[in-house]
């Protein structure tokens, strides 16, 4: 379980995240949604100790993220941020192999190679594995980074807007993959999403943030409602039920 207690982040005088307390249970897919500047990414990076918190605490299975040794935590929790740029000439396989660093300290064992193959396979990157990162499209590079995180083989996988810059096909692939990781491998996936319909269709739990605060949380059925979403995004929004999925329409209202 991920437990955040009265978590706040302040940049100078500006409170980006304000007093957020929440629990994310083990297993399943949790989506964090909300308008720009709601503090979603900041919340995620505080949970994953990439950004130090101004106040409050985060525990992962009872381990305080600011006090637990880095390598220890890296075997339990992985985080992938949005902008992953590197000027290094690395092959896809080399990048994915870095995912094993917390386990083997960079000296790859046969078991590590097995994990690497599996991760490459999982993200259908087999044919690209010897290509260099700078020769890939944005979507392929994104998948290579996700493969690295999968290869890290942690119980908790946190992803900040993994659907950015990828087309619909890969977006669906990616969400199905995260779903499978939760269902088949028992991983706890926490993902920041901009497209609320993906959140509705693929997650078990939705956390909605606005103005640095926790606005709503619950199952997609509970959160995907006209009045909640309209208030959250401050535009008229309508939720329809299509093929048993709650789909929100907001493109051109009235």
């Amino acid at each position: 379980m991920i437990e955040a207690k009265t978590l706040s982040k302040r940049y100078n005088e500006r409170l980006v995240v304000q007093d957020v307390s929440l629990q994310i249970p083990r297993g399943g897919v949790t989506a964090i949604i909300g308008p720009n500047g709601a503090g979603k990414s900041t919340l995620l990076s505080m949970i994953s100790r990439l950004t130090p918190m101004s106040a409050g605490s985060v525990e992962i299975d009872g381990m305080d993220v600011t006090r637990t040794p880095g390598p220890e935590l890296a075997k339990r929790l992985s985080i992938l941020r949005q902008h992953n740029q590197t000027s290094l000439r690395l092959s896809v396989r080399d990048l994915v192999a870095f995912g094993r660093f917390p386990h083997s300290g960079g000296r790859l064992t046969a078991e590590d190679q097995h994990h690497i193959d599996e991760a490459l396979d999982y993200l259908s990157l087999n044919e690209f594995q010897d290509r260099h990162l700078d020769e890939l499209s944005g979507g392929q590079r994104q998948r290579a980074y996700v493969a690295m995180v999968m290869c890290q083989d942690t119980d908790y996988v946190l992803l900040d807007e993994p659907l950015n810059n990828i087309d619909m096909r890969f977006a669906v692939d990616m969400m199905q993959l995260l779903r499978r990781a939760a269902d088949e491998k028992g991983k706890t996936v926490v993902v920041v999403l901009h497209d609320i319909n993906f959140a509705s269709c693929y997650s078990d739990h939705i956390i909605a943030m606005r103005g640095g605060k926790l606005a709503w949380q619950g199952t997609p059925d509970e959160v995907m409602r006209d009045e909640i979403l309209s208030e959250l995004y401050e535009i008229p929004m309508q939720v329809h039920e299509l093929n048993g999925q709650r789909i929100c329409v907001y493109f051109r209202m009235g």
Binding site: I79, N84, F98, G106, R107, Q152
Partner: peptide, 21 residues
Amino acid sequence: RRRLDVLNLGRDVAINLGVSY
């Protein structure tokens, strides 16, 4: 040297992989 390899990937990735940055 192996930590340096990881640090080459940038701060966020290095912390994710457990390097005390």
